Computed example of a mutant assay.
Amino acid sequence: MRKTDTWQDNKDIIAELKQKDSHFATIFDEHAQLDQQINQLDKDMVTHASREEEIEQMKRRKLHLKDEIYKIIDKNKLGSHA
């Protein structure tokens, strides 16, 4: 997978994986929830300052999930071209 691939570039395979792979659907949804929570906390500077460590942990978890999501997408792309 190219480093510039985005969710949009892979929307068909993501939709397929969300339907057939419950683990993928779970981690994809968790990633989306973390993204939303982080964005909300980033908008509130008072809350952000008091929860900075928690936000950093959330960002690390989100990045880990993103890596796992892309590994699954890559594996399925290779499998579909075999």
Rank of each mutant, 00 (worst) to 15 (best):
W7N: 14
Y70M: 02
M58E: 02
Q36A: 15
K18S: 07
A15K: 10
L63Q: 13
K3E: 15
N39E: 11
I69F: 00
A49D: 09
H81L: 11
I73D: 04
I13W: 06
I69E: 03
D29S: 15
L63P: 01
A15V: 02
K18I: 00
I69G: 09
K59R: 05
N39G: 13
T26W: 04
Y70A: 00
Y70P: 01
H31P: 01
E68W: 02
G79V: 01
K71D: 14
I73H: 04
R51T: 00
D44W: 01
R60T: 07
E54L: 12
R51A: 07
N39P: 03
Q40N: 14
D42L: 15
K18D: 06
Q8G: 12
I27T: 02
D35Q: 15
E56D: 13
H81S: 09
E68I: 06
I55H: 01
Q33M: 07
A25L: 02
A25Y: 00
D29A: 15
H81V: 09
K62C: 05
T4R: 14
F28W: 09
K62D: 03
S80Q: 10
R60D: 14
T6S: 15
L63W: 04
D74T: 08
N76W: 00
A32P: 06
A32Y: 09
K77Q: 14
L65P: 07
I38A: 00
N10F: 00
T4Q: 10
A15T: 13
N76F: 03
Q8H: 10
E54G: 13
A82W: 01
N39C: 09
M58S: 05
K43V: 05
Q37F: 10
Q19A: 11
T26Y: 10
V46R: 06
K71C: 08
K71R: 07
L17F: 01
K43Q: 12
D9M: 05
T47F: 03
E68Y: 00
E52I: 09
M45Y: 10
Q37I: 08
I69P: 03
Q37A: 08
H81I: 04
H48D: 01
L41G: 12
A15M: 12
K20Y: 07
V46Y: 03
D21E: 06
K66N: 12
K71G: 07
W7G: 10
T47G: 14
A15C: 08
M58A: 00
D44A: 11
A49L: 10
L41V: 05
I27C: 04
K43W: 01
D42H: 12
D9N: 14
I14Q: 03
F24D: 10
G79E: 05
Q8E: 08
H31K: 11
S50L: 14
A49P: 06
T26K: 11
N76I: 02
